[in-house]
Amino acid sequence: MTFKKKISSTFSELRDLESDFEDFLKINRIPSDIVYDLRMAIHEYILNVMEHGYHWVPNNELEFETTISLKDKTCEVSVTIKDKAPKFEISKEKIFNSVNDRSFRGRGLLMILTFVDDIQYDKTYQEGNKVTLKKVFSLPSD
């Protein structure tokens, strides 16, 4: 099952994307706690692109694709997000070391790393940034 959408870098389009994304996951019977985690991760990741990549300038492009794959009772949700912003990479070490208790900013990146199991950058992607966030979990037995 796949869900694809292109949006521009505005809050209203991001809000609509998150709503459609949640609907897609729920229709495919993804548990609500996993839906929460995935929404949190993509929300914080895209906000990071909008702030640091596009400097809050609206109407820049973002491409979003989600795939749900199932093997036995293990489910993997993979979300790929492409933008046309200058290249950046979220480093685990840097984030975990830089966010102290009283930081105002930086928590969003920490949240992305916490709410998904894997984050991979496609370094060969030339047009901007291409990142894939993955969440793997066991489906509850019926």
Partner: peptide, 12 residues
């Protein structure tokens, strides 16, 4: 639901 912006305000 709470995001980093809400959390940031609480930290302020």
């Amino acid at each position: 639901y709470i995001d980093s912006m809400g959390i940031g305000l609480l930290s302020i």
